[in-house]
Design a protein around this nucleic acid. Structure first.
Length: 519
RNA sequence: GCCUCGCUAGCUCAAUUGGUAGAGCAGUUGACUCUUAAUCAAUUUGUUUCAGGUUCAAGUCCUGAGCGAGGCACCA
């Protein structure tokens, strides 16, 4: 057995020993009799030596404040020859030609090339760089800007300081981090090595800011309501449970902010939204993360159609701003277009029943038994205990929703499917809601909100059944004080970002998606 | 929770029917004053995820575990 693994090593359980992935003791004593030293730490040991060497040469390897004139990406934009600049960033590329070294400094916003030549810097600085600087280190540089012979905007470095010595190597410079697990668990490695990831998360951040600005422009007020709730209402999903020690009371992480936002309508807010996290204790998939970001917005005196107009306008605005077009192309790794989504207005608004007729014109003429047989014929899985409307819903999900990439507001939804929504005044079998499908998934539901406290109570009681503790009495009390009629929407922000960035998995648009703990 | 697939050097990936585990990059040493996946020369690196089993012989076959990916279930 190798001596290294037999030692009482605090990181011995870390496995496999990826250098920048796990913590391993650097000074683990080695068995003198052992012929093979712990080679896997060689790369780390060399970086530690360079760290010590920096100190010997009088350089603090973990520097402090460094005043900059430009971020690397900004300088790329504003570049002109002959500027005196100070720029900081991570060394992400290094091309050593002997007396001349080209290196890139970069941060999340971009990169900029530095021209580092022995004759332009003090000899001591040049030596220090040669001996101690690696890919991955953070440095600050200053000097004048110029164009190289190949017309690359560059800084002729006159001075350089170490801001942070990296003790672990960067991911592969060409492929970046490809291992999905490392991408998600150590997102910083993905971000520093993968341009595509940087773009996605920058775009996500800008989308969030733009939604806030856009709603604010329309007099919507942003609020924050409890994430810790005594009763987890507003949706049908299993909640996460937690406990407040001082109160001695169990709480749930919210599954939706809805019931609190409606309290605010009662209180006199007329346009209100919340853009924040919900938590649902459900399975994890390409489209589901246990914590996800949702926009909920309510507009007093509106209805689901007003809200549909607003959502259509907002998403088109975001597409134009961040994609530059309403025709969005999703591409695979090879850059081939795999899907085209046309957001051109007006978006179709189609009744639920009509959509099913597109699958089978006689769908609604069949008996429930015939519908089940059709499911088998179409290869749609159903279970024996499903009720008739659930069988239909299954067909809807598999044969319509998953194939609907261009936006479609599904309207005239059967009331059985959405029991808590306001019924259509003219037709009691349907409810006044829409379900917006884009890219094969539900992106946004919209409602004419139920504001009759008596009907609301009976619906909630019916839904809760024996579990009367699941009824939010405080909410019902609020409704009795009078909630204005209102239109309400939810928008799954993660799915919207997937749509706009062409991401196939929710894990690619959530910085730190939930994964199972190691060990 | 169930089904299928994956896990090889620090990273990206090879390895024929079960027969000596390799390459590129990174690292190290050297050369080089306009490179940009710099180039050139030399060179180090492995408990093949883990634990068992079959076999003269296992990266490869079998059983189990861990993590991940895809799907199912769950998700008004």
């Amino acid at each position: 057995m190798n001596s290294a693994t037999a030692l009482p090593c605090p990181a011995a359980s870390c496995n496999p020993p990826v250098l920048w992935q796990v913590c391993r003791p650097m000074n683990a004593p080695t068995d003198p009799a052992s012929v093979t030293p712990p080679d896997e730490s060689e790369l780390l040991a060399i970086r530690r030596k360079k760290l010590a060497r920096l100190r010997e040469l009088g350089h603090e390897p973990f520097g402090g404040k460094f005043d900059t004139t430009h971020a690397p990406g900004v300088l790329q934009q504003l570049f002109a020859e002959g500027m005196e600049v100070r720029v900081a960033g991570r060394v992400t590329a290094l091309r050593d030609m002997g007396k001349t070294i080209f290196f890139d400094v970069a941060d999340i916003g971009g990169r900029f090339q530095c021209f580092f030549n022995a004759k332009n810097v003090p000899e001591e600085t040049f030596t220090m760089f040669k001996e101690c600087i690696d890919l991955g280190d953070w440095v600050g540089v200053w000097g004048g800007t110029f164009l190289t012979k190949t017309q690359e905007p560059s800084i002729k470095v006159e001075g350089l300081t170490v801001l942070s010595k990296a003790l672990r190597p960067m991911p592969d410079k060409w492929h970046g981090v490809a291992d999905r697990e490392i991408k998600y668990r150590q997102r910083y490695l993905d971000l520093m090595s993968n341009e595509r990831s940087r773009e996605v998360f920058l775009t996500r951040s800008k989308i969030m800011a733009e939604i806030r600005r856009w709603l604010g422009e329309r007099d919507y007020l942003e609020v924050e309501t409890p994430m810790l709730q005594a009763v987890a209402g507003g949706a049908a999903a299993r909640p996460f449970e937690t406990f407040h020690n001082a109160l001695g009371q169990p709480f749930y992480l919210r599954i939706a902010p809805e019931l609190y936002l409606k309290r605010l309508l009662v209180g006199g807010f007329t346009k209100v939204f919340e853009l924040n996290r919900n938590f649902r204790n459900e399975g994890i998939s390409r489209r589901h993360n246990p914590e996800f970001t949702m926009l909920e917005a309510y507009q007093a005196f509106g209805d689901f159609e007003v809200m549909a107009d607003m959502v259509e306008e907002m998403i088109c605005h975001l597409a134009m701003k961040f994609c530059g077009t309403l025709v969005i192309e999703h591409k695979n790794e090879e850059g081939e277009v795999t899907r085209t989504i046309d957001l051109s207005r007006p978006w179709q608004r189609t009744p639920y029943r009509e959509l099913l007729c597109r699958v089978d014109p006689q769908w609604w003429d069949y008996t429930p038994e015939q519908r089940r047989e059709k499911c088998h014929a179409m290869g749609v899985e159903i279970s024996p205990q499903m009720e008739d409307h659930e069988v239909t819903q299954q067909v809807f999900e598999k044969r319509i929703e998953e194939k609907q990439f261009n936006p479609c507001f599904v309207t005239h939804v059967p009331s059985q499917l959405v029991p808590l929504a306001k019924q259509n005044p003219a037709d009691g079998t349907i409810v006044d809601v829409y379900e917006l499908i884009i890219n094969g998934v539900e992106v946004s539901p919209g409602y004419s909100e139920l504001n009759d406290p008596i009907v609301q109570r009976s619906r909630l009681e019916h839904q809760a059944g024996e579990e009367t503790q699941n009824i939010d009495e405080e909410f019902l009390l609020a409704l009795e004080h009078g909630m204005p009629p209102a239109g309400g929407i939810g928008i799954g922000i993660d799915r919207l970002v997937m749509l706009l960035t062409g991401s196939e998995s929710i894990r690619d648009v959530v910085l730190f998606p939930q994964l199972k703990s190691k060990e």
